[in-house]
Simulated assay, not measured.
Amino acid sequence: MDVSGPLLLLLCALRLTSTGVLSKHVDHRNLFTQRLCCKRQSHFVYLGQDISGSPVSVDVGMCRSHCGGVSRPSHEAGQQEYSKHASMLEFLRSKRTRTRGSASPDSPELPSQLASCGVNQVCEATGMRVDTVLLFEGPREVEVIQECQCDVRLTQCIRVPALRTYHSETPYETVIDVGGCSRSKGAPEGLSCVPTTFDSVLVETPNKGDLVRTVAACELKESCYRVAYVEYYYETVHHADGVKEERLKEIDVGRCLGGCTTGNRCLVRSQSHPEICHLWAERQPGSCAPHGYESHNFLNQHGQIRTILSITSCLCQT
């Protein structure tokens, strides 16, 4: 009796069954889908007026981490609509009013959106350039997102690479790793992963050069925190044998960094995507101030007593 035929059919049936079972556990999001959905989208920010008095808005971009949803208007249409208004705030307010007026209570709900990145991933910018915009108040540097992709969400507070392109599309184009701090998911409540040590890189320009500050190290700190800031002074020391010595004195005078703004700083949110804020309120300057200090006394080069105060702690001032 020939059993090869029935055996072959049995093997094929088992393979189809196992394939169907496995397909239920396979994530429908593949690498292509993740890259396609985690992408750059236009996001215009109003900066002010240029030297001619005309309003200036820049497409700084944003990284969207969802698939589906309502399609966004084209770049040209957005620019034409914005040009009818005096400022970005007026444009956003009129857009919000029109959206409310056109919304119908019987309108269908928006289609559900699928996250493009995995559970332990986040959609972040991988390529950014720094543009200098000449405003009426003076030049202003603006960071513009160029590319986005899914990156692993880190649980430790560490320094992460952050590439910035300066003087793009010019003979002085330079790419620098300015660095940044990871978004520590497992950080204790009230603490953030913030830069504590800095460095600098000299960027060549037609006007000789500019110094760009870079992040060297990160630590878990409160929102208002102290960082080291070293200054050097000449100190005169008189020894017991009558010899006068002039030496270099190093003092860590410290600096206060961070912000203390409380409450919701968002002034205008997107009607279709509430998680997007179109306009933020500026932080109050000088809110993170020195709280404790100590004095350093020494003789300077002229034999006079000089006192230098150094910051020992920082606190939010109300």
Results as ranks from 00 to 15, higher is better:
1 M>Y: 12
5 G>M: 10
6 P>Q: 02
11 L>D: 01
14 L>W: 15
16 L>P: 02
26 V>S: 11
30 N>E: 06
32 F>Q: 12
33 T>C: 02
36 L>P: 03
40 R>T: 01
44 F>E: 05
48 G>W: 00
52 S>E: 11
54 S>T: 09
59 D>I: 04
59 D>A: 11
62 M>A: 11
65 S>R: 01
71 S>P: 03
72 R>D: 06
73 P>M: 15
78 G>R: 06
79 Q>A: 14
79 Q>N: 12
80 Q>P: 03
81 E>V: 14
83 S>R: 15
88 M>G: 05
93 R>S: 04
95 K>I: 00
97 T>L: 05
99 T>R: 14
101 G>N: 12
103 A>Y: 07
104 S>T: 10
106 D>T: 14
108 P>Q: 09
109 E>D: 13
115 A>P: 08
121 Q>E: 15
124 E>G: 01
131 D>F: 06
132 T>Y: 12
139 P>T: 02
143 E>N: 10
145 I>V: 15
146 Q>I: 05
148 C>N: 00
150 C>W: 00
155 T>W: 02
159 R>K: 14
159 R>W: 06
160 V>F: 02
170 T>S: 15
170 T>D: 07
171 P>D: 09
173 E>F: 03
177 D>A: 06
178 V>M: 12
185 K>C: 10
185 K>S: 11
187 A>D: 06
195 P>H: 01
195 P>S: 00
196 T>A: 03
198 F>E: 07
200 S>R: 12
200 S>L: 13
201 V>M: 03
212 V>W: 07
215 V>R: 01
218 C>Q: 01
218 C>A: 01
219 E>W: 08
220 L>W: 07
221 K>H: 09
226 R>V: 04
227 V>Q: 00
227 V>A: 05
228 A>C: 04
228 A>W: 00
229 Y>P: 00
230 V>H: 12
235 E>N: 06
250 E>V: 12
250 E>L: 11
252 D>C: 09
262 T>V: 11
266 C>E: 04
273 H>Y: 09
279 L>R: 08
283 R>K: 13
288 C>W: 03
290 P>V: 13
292 G>A: 09
294 E>L: 02
296 H>W: 07
297 N>L: 15
300 N>R: 05
302 H>L: 11
304 Q>N: 14
306 R>D: 02
306 R>K: 13
308 I>P: 03
309 L>Y: 10
